[in-house]
Design a protein around this nucleic acid. Structure first.
Lengths: 248, 248
DNA sequence: GCAAAGTGTATCGCACAATGAAACGCAAGG
DNA sequence: CCTTGCGTTTCATTGTGCGATACACTTTGC
C-alpha cells in the first residue's frame, strides 16, 4: 500500500475546496482548482449532491451544505433533553457560562455552550473548537490521558501561546496535568484570553468511564479566580455526578 | 451514471460514523457498522489518517480529528486581523454580542461570534450554525436572494418553529424578507429563543457584492427591541461600511 | 449579427485501482 | 491450553472509476 486511496484524497480535496469558498463554485472552476477533468469532477459532485453534502444554486454552481458541518458536530445530538436541563440549572445556579465538551486531538469539541448571563438559556456554539491546553475543560480532559498519550498528541506541534499565562511547553503541560489529576478539577486563569477564568471537572458515566467534561466560565473578572475553587467547583462536581448518572 | 460513486459514498459514511461517535472506534467495529471487509475499511482509514482527518489513539482506535471540522469552518480564516479589530470595537461600542456569518443552505455559518459582555473580547463559536429563518443575520442574508432562490432552499422543509414568534411558513418568510430588503436591516425579536433580540445588516465589498452579514445580539431583554433600531443599527451600519471597505 | 470562448452534459472503451476472501501472528480471557 | 477477536498482509479478479472526445447551449466581444 502506498499513498492514500486516490478517490478518498480527491473527495477530501473537493470538500475542502468547497468548504473554503464562501461563494458557490462552478464545475469548471472546481475542475481547474483540482486539476481534474470536468467529467470526473462532475461525477464527484453529483455523488456528493445525492448524498446531501453539497447543493447547487439556480445557476448550477455548487456549495457545501450544512450537512457537511454536521458530520463533525453530530455529537451535539448526544446531549439529551435531560442533560440540557441540568446544564441550564447549573448555569442559573452559578451565574457562569456552562459548556460541555470532548477531546478531539489537540482541541476541545464543544457539544454545548451557553454564554454567561443568558437569562433565557440561549444555546449557542455547539460544534465550536478551542485549543485544549489553554482551556480548563481541555486540561481536565487531557489529564484523563496517560502522559505518553498526551506527548504523542503534541508530538510535533508544541502548545501555542495565547496570553503570557498560557502553558507553552510539553513538560510544563504534563506537570500541570499531573497536579490537575491529583486535584480532580482544572482551572484556567486567563490562559486563553486575558481576564477569562474557567473551571472544569470530568463527567464519568455509571461504569466509571470518561464521558464528557463540564466547564464553567466567567469573563471579565466578574468572578475572582479564588471564588471558583470555593463556590463554582463544588456545584460543578455535584452537577457532573447527576449528569453522569443519566442514562445515555 | 447511476448512484453515487461507490468510494465517495463509503468515504462519507465512514466519516459520518467517526464523527457521530464520541469514543474512538476500532477497525473491527467500523468494519461491522459499514458492512465492509476489514481490509477495505483499513485502507480508507489509512488514507484519511495520512490526509490528517482521522487519528488513532494508543490502542489503535480511530477518531475524527479537528481538521475534519475545519473543512467547513475554514471561512473563519477569512476574518482578518483588521476585521477582527472592527468587530471588537463594535462590541465595546454597543455592549452587545457581535457575530459575522454567511448563508449555507438553510443555516447561517458563523465566522465569528463574540458573546455579549465579554470585556476582554473572547472570541468563541466560529463554525457554529443556526437556522437562518429564525435569526436576524439569517434573514438579512436570505433577503439578498431572489424569492425563487429562497423558495428553492425551503422547498421541501418548511421553516421550523422555535418560539411562538418564529416565522413558520414560506409565504410569511418571503413577505418578511421583502420588508427587510426595503428597510435595509433585519430584526429578530425572540424568534429563536424567548427573550433574545438581535439586529443584523449586510456587509458589501467594494464592488458592491454581498460579503457577509453582521449581527448584534442582546440576550435577556437587557436591551429593548426598540433600542436596536435607534442605537444599535446605526452603529452596525457604520461598522459594516468600514468592514466592507477593508481589502480581502 | 456572427464568431469565439466558455459552460454544463453525455458517451465509451480501457487500465488498473479498489476489492474482499483468506491466511497469519498476536493478545486477552475463559 | 484453547478460543475468540483483533490488526495486518497478501493476492488474483473484476468492474469501477477514468479522461479524451464530442455535443448543445449560453455568454462575451466586436
Amino acid at each position: 500500500m502506498d499513498g492514500p486511496l486516490r478517490t478518498v484524497e480527491r473527495t477530501m480535496r473537493l470538500l475542502s475546496e468547497l468548504g473554503a469558498s464562501l461563494e458557490p463554485l462552478s464545475l469548471a472552476e472546481l475542475s481547474r482548482r483540482l486539476g481534474l477533468g470536468k467529467a470526473t469532477v462532475r461525477r464527484f459532485l453529483l455523488s456528493l449532491e445525492e448524498l446531501g453534502y453539497v447543493g447547487r444554486d439556480a445557476r448550477g454552481a455548487y456549495s457545501a451544505l450544512p450537512a457537511l458541518g454536521r458530520i463533525v458536530a453530530q455529537p451535539a445530538a448526544a446531549v439529551s433533553r435531560q442533560v440540557a436541563g441540568e446544564l441550564r440549572e447549573l448555569a442559573a445556579e452559578t451565574g457562569t457560562g456552562i459548556s460541555l465538551g470532548v477531546l478531539r486531538g489537540q482541541e476541545v469539541l464543544y457539544l454545548w455552550r451557553e454564554p454567561p448571563g443568558s437569562a433565557a438559556g440561549v444555546v449557542l456554539g455547539e460544534g465550536a473548537r478551542l485549543p485544549a491546553h489553554a482551556t480548563a475543560i481541555g486540561k481536565i480532559l487531557l489529564a484523563q490521558l496517560a502522559p505518553e498519550a498526551v506527548a504523542e498528541i503534541y508530538g510535533d506541534t508544541p502548545p501555542r501561546a495565547f496570553t503570557p499565562r498560557t502553558i507553552v511547553s510539553l513538560p510544563l503541560l504534563l506537570g500541570a496535568l499531573q497536579e490537575i489529576r491529583r486535584q480532580g478539577w482544572a482551572l484556567s486563569d486567563g490562559e486563553l484570553e486575558e481576564g477569562l477564568t474557567a473551571a472544569a471537572v470530568p463527567v464519568y458515566d455509571r461504569a466509571g468511564g470518561l464521558r464528557w467534561a463540564l466547564n464553567a466560565a466567567s469573563p471579565g473578572h466578574r468572578l475572582a479566580p479564588a471564588a471558583f475553587a470555593t463556590d463554582v467547583v463544588p456545584a460543578l462536581m455535584r452537577a457532573a455526578g447527576r449528569i453522569g448518572a443519566i442514562e445515555s
